[in-house]
Amino acid sequence: MAPTSHSSPPKIEELEPRWRLTRRTILRGLAFVVAAVGLPRFGSAIARAIAPPTLQPIGPLEFFTDAEYAFVAAASARFVPANDTGPGALEADAPRYIDRKLAAPGGGAAAWYMDGPFEPGMPTQGWQVDLTPAALYRRTIPQMNNAAKNLYGADFKDLSAANQDALLTAMQKKELDADSIHASLFFATLLNDTIEGLMSDPLYGGNKDFIGWKMIGFPGVRYNWLPWLDHEGEPIDLPIVGMYGTAESYGARMRKGTGP
């Protein structure tokens, strides 16, 4: 079941990088680049983009509409699918990680340089679109659902796995790119965000029950590997820990909210 979303999400215009920086916001932001340092009386977009969130229960969606969430959930299930080898990115709550990331100030671009003029540039010159990641999601999901309807007769979330894969492939191969449609950029962003949500510390809202770290065989963050240095690479039989401890400690602190 899709979680409950905001009744009226921000419009694209509100998510686009029209804000103009002042020296004051920049310098105040500096104090927060490392959260443990600085002057607590100021907030800043850069700082909040980089500092870790406080550990809080997964609750209602913070950015996505239900329809947007359904698209992202369906795509994440194709990017790292659940199959006979175990659960995938959707089961790890990667879409909830993305929701939180995009809800942050600046829509995921608070630390980026977003002054104009914007020119198309070359792929080797990097992101040159006048959109934050949040605005890119908000604009592109309906465009991709339209493409899904035109090509296969239904919204992306309702397509067969094979047709979903075909549409994702068309996005990746730039076949759906057009003047105002950044399908390949959106594909790359969504794939990157899905992997981040699968493999980052559960603190950030994804990697539920360490599904990602179990998948890859990462025993977690530990401070001393000296006893295993000369261990010939044999598997290390220790419980997985993140920055806040074991899965149980995250579960008790994060999963007793109202989430899905």
Partner: peptide
């Protein structure tokens, strides 16, 4: 890039 100069700066 939590320890890096951010492009916005």
């Amino acid at each position: 890039h939590g320890l890096m100069v951010q492009p916005r700066l």
